[in-house]
Design a protein around this nucleic acid. Structure first.
Lengths: 189, 189
DNA sequence: GCGGCTAGTAAACGAGCGTATACTCGCCTG
DNA sequence: CAGGCGAGTATACGCTCGTTTACTAGCCGC
């Protein structure tokens, strides 16, 4: 009757333990950001030993990198027809402003920037997984600058939500945010 | 001939030392954010003893709070006629994206959020010094939501600049960013 | 001229961190 | 059934952090 089977049985299974650590890390990083999460928290959440983080991922930074790499969350929003991109971004950002049912790792991007190694990981992820595919769907020479601006708005909304707490978005909010994204992404004034 | 007079003479002057610590802290916090700055760094930069931080400001958090309180930087941009607010925000954000000649403490807002006490300070500062005065210049029932969105864009641009490095803003960028702020602040669609 | 208030100093403390090491135990092969 | 490989564990190491304490030394009023 004690805390034996938290989520599922735990036989000696390297891969299963690895996955538990990965899932726990993903959840915690998304919730609190890289710096605020300790390997002890991750190990406890995964019901695993601290040393296994080092054993399976080399280091905390390595684990974070693997979490980032396995994160498909935003691709669904960004890829797809460029026509509805602004709308999808608007809805996603508005919903993110309200409540965060699934925890997207994107949320940790803005607040994980202490260790230079981590900053490099975040930068690369930001470029390759967000700005690059977004730029690919745009026309014009300043496509990257526009994608960058849209990403800035996206991150900023997340930051505000984190700092000030969620706020129920009205349909008007979604429309306004969508319009902002459209303006960011529009080829030229 | 050794490192005696770094910037100015240093007689036993409580107030002067306090100010040196305050200035050093302001600069470092703005550059690296709260978490990344240690009291040892501050004391070294101020050419003062570590213990004085505790003595004069109570704690590192207290020092940060005093730095925040004495920061008039953004008021100049936000206050003034609401007509040109979007333009001023646009120019400031664009310039901030490019280069940061004077170091505004605002930059540390987004990345200083670990300690709950600090988060509370940042939240309060964000509300009182940015959102509230911005809301005051707007009309309509959703004025605060609009100010909040504009602030989100503002912070997001800062975050991007910090993560990806500065990028030379073209006049078109300034215009686009200004248009974004106008859209954020406009009463209704 | 000197005693006491006070600015400034040096050093250490305790806690928390990421990481590494030495060990135990369960399972699977031969 | 015996042996060993590897998953999992307990624990400690080294470091840095913010903070505190005990001390030194300069100025100012009497």
């Amino acid at each position: 009757m004690n805390a034996e089977a938290a989520t599922e049985a735990k036989p000696r299974d390297r891969e299963a333990t690895r996955q538990r650590l990965l899932r726990a890390a993903r959840s915690l990083f998304a919730e609190h950001g890289y710096e605020q999460v300790t390997v002890r928290m991750i190990a406890a959440a995964a019901d695993a030993n601290i040393a296994l983080v080092g054993r399976y991922f080399g280091s905390k930074a390595g684990l974070f990198g693997e979490v980032l790499a396995g994160e498909p969350t935003v691709a669904r929003v960004i890829e797809g027809d460029p026509e509805g991109l602004a709308r999808r971004l608007g809805e996603y950002a508005a919903e993110r402003m309200y409540s965060d049912p699934e925890s997207p790792i994107l949320r940790s991007l803005e607040r994980s920037a202490g260790d230079p190694e981590i900053q490099e990981l975040v930068r690369e992820r930001l470029r390759n997984a967000i700005i690059a595919p977004m730029t690919a769907g745009l026309d014009g020479p300043d496509a990257q600058a526009r994608a960058r601006l849209a990403t800035a708005v996206f991150l900023g909304i997340g930051t505000m939500r984190r700092l000030l707490g969620p706020e129920v978005p009205t349909p008007a909010d979604v429309d306004r945010i969508t319009a902002v994204f459209e303006l960011c992404l529009r080829p030229h004034t």
